[in-house]
């Protein structure tokens, strides 16, 4: 499947781009992270500490075990600091 992957805040800086379109068979967010982290050293650095990474699947807050079935967009970002 084709997936848009978005990055925000320091994940965007570490990876060096705000979004990328990828082809993947990842079943869950966790599988996708493993795939992305294996791409290059920048992705590896961004995903080195998953306790500092949050995610959204099709713009809904999600967990590492969230399924990617029929999903089009996944976003990774640090813990949110609104307000």
């Amino acid at each position: 499947m084709t997936l848009d992957v978005l990055y925000f805040a320091w994940l965007r800086e570490r990876i060096g781009q705000p979004r990328e379109r990828i082809e993947t068979d990842a079943a869950t967010v966790r599988d996708l992270v493993a795939e992305l982290a294996a791409k290059d050293e920048w992705h590896a650095a961004a995903f080195s500490d998953m306790s500092a990474v949050r995610c959204a699947v099709d713009q809904q807050l999600a967990e590492l075990d969230t399924s990617l079935n029929e999903v089009r967009e996944v976003a990774f970002f640090p813990p949110m600091t609104g307000g």
Binding site: F8, M80, G83
Partner: peptide, 14 residues
């Protein structure tokens, strides 16, 4: 609402 906005709304401050 402030508690939800602080930690669960996709904003990042620098």
């Amino acid at each position: 609402l402030m508690d939800w906005l602080k930690s669960r709304a996709p904003f990042w401050k620098r």
